[in-house]
Design a protein around this nucleic acid. Structure first.
Length: 680
DNA sequence: AGCACGCCGACT
DNA sequence: GTCGGCGTGCTC
C-alpha cells in the first residue's frame, strides 16, 4: 500500500462499535468534505463510513505506525449532516460514551447506509417541489387570553436577550401551550426560517400536525417518526435538509434532522420518559436539543404540565427561564382530586362502592368516565390454589399474564406465549385460578356491573389492528355516555370534552417502589391523567384508589398540587445527592450463562475504578437488576454516582479506554447509560 | 458488529 | 492426522 499519491488523510466514523475514528488516505484532486460518505475497506470487508475530519497528508511518509489504506470511493459531493450536526453528533457520542460510528449512522436514514449516491430521482423530486408562499395564512386565530398574552410577551423578550437561555413553559393541561408555540413560530416564517418540534409519541403527531396546518395553511411540513417507511423517512429528511420543510415535527430521533435555517426548537412534554432512548445510543432528546440550540445560538422552549425535577431545578437556579400558564381558557374550575382508601371495602370490579356510585351518577348525567389501570391482560397471575404453582415465563424472571380473549399466557417482557394449561403441571389439579386484575378483566367486570353502559377498552391489545384505535377514539368523541377503560395509552394528548370522572387504580406499587424516580413519575402520571377530566364548562372529578391513603407524598400532591410535590421530592434528592444534585451513570451487564457471570464482570469493572479513581465516585452494586432475567439473559447493574460530572465522565473514560482489557467477557453484553432514568 | 485466528476434542 | 467448536482480538 503506497502513499505516494495520497493527498489527504481522512478521519472516518465507521459503522462498528469503535470509540475511535479510523484514518484512510485519499488521492483525489479535491478532498471530500466532512459529512460526506466514503466507501472504505474494513478488515476484509467493505463498508460505508462518514468523513469527520480531513487533513493534508504529510509530504513524505512520516514513518507512521500504520500504513493507511486508501478509501475506495467518495459517495457524496455535499455533506449529509452539516458541520453543526456533525459537531452535535460527536458531542453526543462523547457525552453518552457511545461508539461514534453507531451514533452517526443511527442518526441518518437507513437508506444512506448503502453505498449508493443520493439518487438523482430524489434530487429531482425535490427540485420540482412547489415553492410555498412565505406569508402565514391568517385565519381562524383564537384570541389569546391575557395570561397567554403575557406569557408570549415574556418569552419574546427573553429571546431577544443575550445569552439565550432555554425556556420552561409550565402550563396546566388545557392552558394552551400549543397556542404559544404557534405564535412563536409565526414570525419565523416571514423570515424563511425552520422550526423543529419534538413530541414524545407518534400518537400525538397527527393532532399537532393538523393544528399547525390549520394555523399556517399550506406550510410545507416534514414529519419524522418510527412508523415511516425508509423511503418516507428519507424524503422527509431531505426536505428538512434542503430547507424546504419549514416545520419539522417528530419523535426523539428527529432531533438529528438537518435543518439549515433552524431558528427555534420546541420540546413538547419535556418530562416524558420516551424522550430518552433506552437501547444502544441512550440519548435524551431534550438534553441534546438544549445542546443543539446552544450550539446554534437559537431559542428553545420546553412545554409541560408536569416539569421533570431536572428542569424545575434548572429553572430554580436560573439556568432556564420559567413561565407558567395557570388558567384553562373557558373554565375556571379545577378538577376535584380525592383519595379513596380501598382497605375497608370489599372491592367489586376492583372498585370501591364510592367509585361505583360516582360512575353511576356520572353516566346518569350523560357524561363519560375513564378508569385508568396501567396493566393490560385479564390477570397478572395464574396459579394453582392447591399446590401454589404459578405460571412463570421460561425466559424471564416474571409471572406470565393471562389473556382471556386469546386464552393464552403471555410474557409482557419477552413476548413469549403459551397455551393456557388445562390442569396444574405440578399436581394435576384442574382448577387453576387467576389473581389480580388487568384491563381485560376490568372491562368485563364493569360491563357486568353496568349492563346498560357502553364500555370501551383502549390498550395495546385492543388497538393492535390498523384503524382500531381511531375507531375507538371516534366512539369516545361522539360524547355519548360511556366507560373508558385503559392503560398509559390514555394518559397522553387526547381531548375528551364530555369526560368528567377519572378513576385511577393500582398506584400502590409506585408509592412503595424503591426506585427514587417512581414517585416523580407517579405524580406526573396522576396530574396528566387527571388533566383528561373536565373540559369546557364541566367540572372534573378524579378518584385515586389506594391502600396507602396516608402516604405523605400523595397528600402533598392532592392537597397542594404538582409544584410543591415536586419541590418536596427535590429536597429528598438533595439530601441523597441524587440527580439533579449529583450525576449518575448505570453500567449494565447481562449473561446467558448465569447471574454470577454478569455480577463478576461488573465486579471487575468496579475494581478497576478503585485503582483508577478514588474519592469522588460512589458505587452501588454490582447488584442483580430489578428484572433479574429477561429473554434468557441474567441481568446485573452497577450504578456510579458523583457530585461532579467531570469526575464521573473521567471514570467512564478510564473504563472504556481500549487499553483496558476486561477479561472473561465471553457471553457478556454490557452497556453504559449516562443520566439513566430507567433502572429496571 | 462481523470476521479471522487459534487452540482443543471426536471423526472419515 | 484434520474438521470445527467457540473464546479472543482486531478493524486505519
Amino acid at each position: 500500500m503506497t502513499q505516494d499519491h495520497s493527498r489527504y488523510i481522512l478521519h472516518v466514523a465507521v459503522p462498528r462499535p469503535l470509540r475511535t475514528l479510523l484514518s484512510y488516505t485519499c488521492a483525489d484532486e479535491s478532498a471530500p468534505k466532512p459529512g460526506s460518505r466514503v466507501l472504505i475497506p474494513l478488515g476484509k470487508q467493505h463498508a460505508v463510513g462518514l468523513v469527520i475530519r480531513v487533513e493534508t497528508a504529510p509530504p513524505e511518509d512520516a514513518d507512521s505506525r500504520f500504513t493507511l489504506k486508501p478509501v475506495e470511493a467518495i459517495l457524496d459531493t455535499t455533506p449529509l449532516p452539516d458541520a453543526h450536526l456533525l459537531e452535535l453528533l460527536q458531542w453526543g457520542a462523547r457525552y453518552y460514551h457511545h461508539p461514534v460510528g453507531e451514533v452517526i449512522f443511527s442518526a441518518l436514514p437507513v437508506a444512506l447506509r448503502k453505498p449508493k449516491p443520493l439518487s438523482s430521482r430524489l434530487q429531482k423530486l425535490l427540485g420540482r417541489y412547489e415553492a410555498p408562499s412565505l406569508a402565514p395564512v391568517e385565519r381562524n386565530h383564537l384570541q389569546l387570553t391575557d395570561e397567554q398574552q403575557q406569557c408570549l410577551h415574556s418569552i419574546e423578550q427573553w429571546n431577544l436577550q443575550a445569552p439565550l437561555r432555554p425556556i420552561l413553559l409550565h402550563g396546566i393541561t388545557g392552558s394552551g401551550k400549543t397556542e404559544i408555540y404557534l405564535r412563536l413560530i409565526a414570525p419565523l416564517f416571514a423570515a424563511g426560517k425552520q422550526v423543529l418540534v419534538i413530541v414524545p409519541e407518534i400518537g400525538l403527531t397527527p393532532q399537532l400536525l393538523l393544528r399547525f396546518a390549520h394555523f399556517f395553511g399550506d406550510t410545507p411540513m416534514a414529519c419524522l417518526h418510527s412508523a415511516l417507511s425508509d423511503g418516507e423517512r428519507m424524503k422527509a429528511w431531505l426536505q428538512a435538509r434542503s430547507g424546504e420543510a419549514r416545520i419539522i415535527i417528530g419523535t426523539r430521533s428527529a432531533i438529528f434532522t438537518p435543518a439549515p435555517n433552524l431558528a427555534l426548537i420546541v420540546i413538547d412534554e419535556e418530562h416524558d420518559a420516551s424522550l430518552k432512548q433506552q437501547e444502544g445510543f441512550r440519548y435524551h432528546a431534550r438534553d441534546l436539543a438544549i445542546k443543539r440550540a446552544q450550539m446554534l445560538n437559537i431559542p428553545i422552549i420546553m412545554g409541560t404540565a408536569t416539569p421533570s425535577l431536572e428542569s424545575l431545578y434548572n429553572a430554580d437556579t436560573a439556568r432556564f427561564h420559567y413561565v407558567r400558564l395557570n388558567q384553562r381558557p373557558g373554565t375556571t374550575r379545577k378538577p376535584d382530586l380525592q383519595i379513596q382508601d380501598t382497605r375497608p371495602f370489599e372491592l367489586q370490579a376492583g372498585l370501591t362502592p364510592h367509585s361505583l356510585q360516582a360512575i353511576r351518577t356520572t353516566l346518569a348525567r350523560g357524561e363519560q368516565v375513564m378508569v385508568f389501570l396501567n396493566r393490560r391482560g385479564f390477570a397478572p397471575a395464574l396459579y394453582c390454589p392447591s399446590c401454589g404453582w404459578q405460571a412463570s415465563c421460561q425466559h424471564c424472571s416474571v409471572k406470565m399474564t393471562w389473556h382471556a380473549r386469546r386464552n393464552k399466557l403471555v410474557c409482557h417482557h419477552c413476548g413469549a406465549e403459551q397455551a393456557t394449561p388445562l390442569r396444574c403441571p405440578q399436581c394435576q389439579n384442574p382448577q387453576l385460578t387467576t389473581q389480580g386484575q388487568g384491563t381485560e378483566r376490568l372491562e368485563l367486570a364493569l360491563q357486568t356491573h353496568f349492563p346498560a353502559a357502553v364500555v370501551v377498552r383502549i390498550d395495546r391489545d385492543s388497538t393492535s389492528r390498523k384503524g382500531e384505535l381511531e375507531a375507538k377514539l371516534a366512539t369516545v368523541r361522539s360524547n355519548d355516555p360511556l366507560i373508558l377503560v385503559g392503560t398509559q395509552m390514555l394518559a397522553k394528548g387526547h381531548d375528551f370534552p364530555n369526560l368528567t370522572l377519572v378513576i385511577i387504580l393500582d398506584i400502590d406499587q409506585s408509592l412503595l417502589s424503591t426506585d427514587y424516580r417512581a414517585l416523580e413519575r407517579l405524580g406526573q402520571l396522576l396530574i396528566q391523567v387527571a388533566g383528561r377530566a373536565g373540559r369546557a364548562d364541566k367540572a372534573g372529578k378524579v378518584i385515586l384508589q389506594t391502600s396507602q391513603p396516608d402516604h405523605p407524598m400523595l397528600h402533598q400532591l392532592v392537597g397542594h398540587g404538582y409544584t410543591p410535590f415536586a419541590r418536596q421530592l427535590l429536597e429528598d434528592r438533595k439530601r441523597w445527592h441524587f440527580p439533579p444534585f449529583g450525576y449518575q451513570a448505570l453500567i449494565r451487564a447481562s449473561s446467558t450463562a448465569s447471574m454470577e457471570k454478569a455480577l463478576q464482570f461488573l465486579e471487575q469493572i468496579s475494581q478497576l475504578l478503585i485503582v483508577t479513581d478514588g474519592a469522588d465516585i460512589q458505587r452501588l452494586g454490582p447488584i442483580p437488576a430489578l428484572l433479574e432475567k429477561r429473554a434468557n439473559r441474567y441481568r446485573a447493574q452497577l450504578l456510579l454516582g458523583s457530585q461532579h460530572r467531570a469526575a464521573l465522565h473521567a471514570a467512564l473514560l478510564q473504563l472504556l479506554n481500549p487499553s483496558v482489557k476486561l477479561p472473561g467477557r465471553s457471553g457478556i453484553r454490557w452497556s453504559v447509560d449516562v443520566d439513566p432514568i430507567d433502572f429496571s
